[in-house]
Design a protein around this nucleic acid. Structure first.
Lengths: 139, 139, 139, 139
DNA sequence: GTGGTCTAGACCACT
DNA sequence: GTGGTCTAGACCACC
């Protein structure tokens, strides 16, 4: 399992870790009950501060994506609840809108954006409307 | 012309202003050569510090979206060059990918995302592949 | 006599006028005792505020480049003294140095800069070491 | 590494910092990946406000000259792209032309200007036509 | 009137 | 520790 981190990016390191774990789960690279590297392992491998990895793991646990078994390590969870805070949904819409605005200023056509989107969905498991089976709808 | 700012958002105030101006340009709410409110005016209207507005305006000018006439004010530019830095394009793709991942964790279907996307493109001028006429392709 | 002004430039309008007058003198486009347009004429022609033109003329007069005959108008002076304030010389060196630094960051070679320099000197009168005859050395 | 600032100059403090950093990079005084003094450090050393230093650093980062690692500091970039906006090139030409005009009014000969120019190029790395190796041509 | 610069001082997020 | 953001208030040049 390899993480690709860009230390120069404006998105925080711990955030990049979170995003990559979530993305790998969606792509099926990480499967339920699979063990994640320890904080120390990962921080050594990525040459970053252990606190940064720790912060990422804590946030992932808070979101229910992963869970830790004392003395055994941290693992990918099954049955991740779909939590849909309306505030977060609004943020997503905003993010998409902004992305489109920027894309247009960059000269990218709607078709190009749609192509990207299709690519991403194809990369992910259960590329139907439903998402992966491990997602359990609690709404 | 009204700006809607969320002071509790994690995105900086000046960034929100930038985004709104760009969006209004794309929607045709702001037209080329139209005058923007003065720094003092807008800061008073939004109840924020003039420096914050100024910073937003300067960044917009740097991006070629607006320009200032000394002692007269700031205006929307015509012929905005489509500036496509490969690094920025990568950021956009990343932003889109992340948005999709988050959407799936929120239980949103691909179809819902596509609906949002269509909405946004319809709101904007020249909602075909080409973008508004004021965008001048320099590639 | 035509002035080319860029209202979007970051150099002040009155400064641009000053520069152009000086340049025209150097090129011989404006000759000693030649009459300049009145403030009102020039401001109307350039579609700018008369105060701006007035400010430029005042500064040019202060530098001895032009002089006004009451009721007759303003004229190019003969015998412009070469005033060489060490502080201004330092500014020129600084300006040249900065220009070279920026040119290198823009990928321009030394040879290209030298070509520009030769062009400019050829455009001017008395392109020898001495400058135009109207320059009277008072040092 | 020492910065020399003239608080009485008409060029802004933050601009002077920018110019000095660029110049030091060109002279090889600052090398790729070298750490710059922190904002607080430099502001204390120069006895100016931290915000002023910060503004300079941000502009330098925008130009690709430096980059920041979150929580670690700011560093000189390698592989600075040669960014040649035609508008900026025009400004450089204008700056050179104006400098020459002023020099002639100050009684300086073409030969003196050429001597300055040679000096500056000799001070810089790779004083041939090519510029320093760290400049990466993207044209 | 306009925007641009600078200061002083505060708060925050990230490493 | 680092840089980033924001505020309040001042001064300046330009038009």
């Amino acid at each position: 399992m390899f993480f690709q981190i860009d230390p120069r990016s404006n998105t925080p390191l711990y955030e990049q870790i979170i995003q990559q774990v979530k993305e790998m789960c969606m792509k099926g690279v990480l499967k339920p009950d699979e063990k994640l590297p320890s904080v120390r392992e990962l921080s050594a491998q990525m040459v970053i501060n252990p606190n940064t990895v720790s912060k990422a793991y804590q946030e992932l646990e808070r979101q229910g994506i992963i869970h830790t078994l004392r003395g055994r390590g941290t693992f990918i969870s099954q049955d991740v609840p779909t939590y849909s805070d309306p505030r977060r949904i609004q943020e997503m819409k905003q993010s998409l809108k902004q992305m489109i605005v920027d894309a247009r200023y960059a000269g990218l056509s709607k078709q190009e954006i749609l192509t990207w989107l299709e690519e991403f969905y194809e990369e992910m498991e259960g590329n139907s409307d439903e998402g992966p089976a491990s997602l359990k709808d609690h709404s």
